[in-house]
Simulated scan of single mutants.
Amino acid sequence: MPVRPPLHRPVGRREKRERDHDYDRTRDPVSRALYHSKRWRTEREAFLHEHPLCMECQHHDVIRPASVVDHIDPHRGDETVFWDRNRWQALCASCHGRKTAVQDGGFGNARRCS
């Protein structure tokens, strides 16, 4: 009987998935519910359709597709702020990660998109 060869899994893949899952569990339950709602998925897709390019990259004359809807100011679970489209911006994952790290005191100064 043939034996299937093992699948290659990059080092750290499981750990990253577990870290992401742990972060979501420690997030405020109200915020978590907002991000997991069908309304958010629908609104997010519509916003990205209307704003297909990363705003931060455009400021640096770089064209990159947006993949994240970012709340410009943290909403901290306030539904009025959460759903206010005037407080949203379309970002690529790289710019969003950099912005979040700077706001949360992570990596230090934000760097230019490259």
Score class of each variant (00 low, 15 high):
E79H: 07
R9N: 10
S67D: 06
D20C: 04
H8Y: 15
T42M: 11
F107C: 10
R112A: 14
D20T: 05
R17F: 09
W40C: 06
D20Q: 11
K99V: 09
C57F: 01
M55W: 06
A33C: 04
P74K: 00
A90D: 01
Q89M: 10
E18Y: 04
M55I: 08
C92K: 00
E79G: 03
H21K: 15
S114Y: 12
S31L: 10
W83N: 02
H59G: 09
R13W: 00
C113N: 05
P29G: 01
A110M: 15
T80A: 13
F82E: 00
T26M: 06
F82S: 01
L34A: 04
R76F: 14
L34P: 02
H51V: 01
A101H: 09
E15F: 03
D73H: 15
V62N: 05
D78F: 01
W40G: 02
H21N: 12
Q89E: 13
M55H: 13
Y23D: 15
P2I: 06
A46E: 12
P65F: 01
C95L: 05
D70E: 12
F82R: 01
F107M: 11
R44P: 05
T100G: 02
R4V: 12
A46W: 05
R14V: 15
A46V: 10
H36Y: 06
F82V: 02
H71Q: 07
W88H: 03
D20R: 08
E50C: 02
D20Y: 05
D28P: 09
H8P: 05
A101C: 12
V69Q: 02
